[in-house]
Design a protein around this nucleic acid. Structure first.
Lengths: 146, 146
DNA sequence: TCTCTATTTAACCGAAACGGTATAATATAA
DNA sequence: TTATATTATACCGTTTCGGTTAAATAGAGA
């Protein structure tokens, strides 16, 4: 059951945190800058940003001086929104989902327990706003490359 | 972050639940019976039982009429014990564990949040006794093969 | 219009993890 | 001695993960 944090999700949250710190800026943040500041390769950052945009969380501007921004205020985005945009599915395996996987009768206590835990975690994710995790240049260990 | 329930862990809990239902029986349960009743292949059940025994949770008797039993009362075994015996490691990724993975300064709020969640889940696992999930023949959908 | 800088989109790839099997050895009851 | 068990390790195919490549498109500015 392993509460496993995918690196992708991890980066996604950090990217959103950075964009949150720049919410309201006049210029969007280019992926290059995200990648440099957050120590992710540009191709990987691109892929994550792409998924988050498809998920409806980010808006982008193409061409020179283009870049990425949050579509909503960090106060209106939850951690759950980010994970969902990244394609996170159910947290519970087929033990619960597939009808005949478990030989025990429904309601099986093991199922019930894990359903409860999932529900409780989802609730936590939905209650935490991105604004809480926003950060800006001054929060970095190292100063800006430029 | 995906609260992903590995099939192995799932089976492990069910196997322990079955053994818990038979705790105190005069004869140990052979792996063959576990496999048949819990709809797992015998080789796979064998592997899981092996891990649980190495983890100190199960005792085994070899030879004819041999089999498996719980080493402790189901009241003295927690879900956490089972997962730990199965080799479940930390639930948090290197974002927290590797010093320089995250460019943000400690204590980073994202880290803090996930540490909290992990701690809270572990607490839940430690508070649930195996006895609560025990089951016996009468709990099955289908009657015993023999 | 040309060029540079961006994003866009899909395909691809190696490595690790997952789910499970095979097999050879050993132990013990009868 | 034989049949039934567990023991222990090695193996293997498939999927997922983490990440790259590359080609296309879009827009700003000279």
């Amino acid at each position: 059951m392993l509460f496993s944090l995918k690196k992708e999700y991890d980066h996604a949250i950090r990217i959103c945190g950075f964009l949150a710190g720049h919410y309201g800026d006049s210029r969007p943040i280019p992926v290059r800058e995200l990648a440099e500041r957050l120590l992710v390769s540009k191709p990987f950052a691109t892929k994550i940003v792409y998924q988050l945009r498809l998920g409806g969380l980010l808006a982008s501007e193409q061409g020179k001086y283009g870049g990425i921004r949050l579509r909503l205020s960090p106060r209106d985005i939850t951690l759950y929104d980010i994970l969902k945009a990244m394609g996170m599915g159910r947290m519970i395996s087929e033990c619960v989902l597939e009808e005949d996987f478990c030989p025990l009768p429904a309601p099986c206590k093991i199922h019930g327990f894990f359903m409860e835990q999932e529900a409780s975690l989802v609730k936590v994710f939905k209650n935490r706003k991105l604004a809480e995790f926003a950060f800006t240049e001054k929060d970095f260990k190292t100063s800006s490359p430029q």
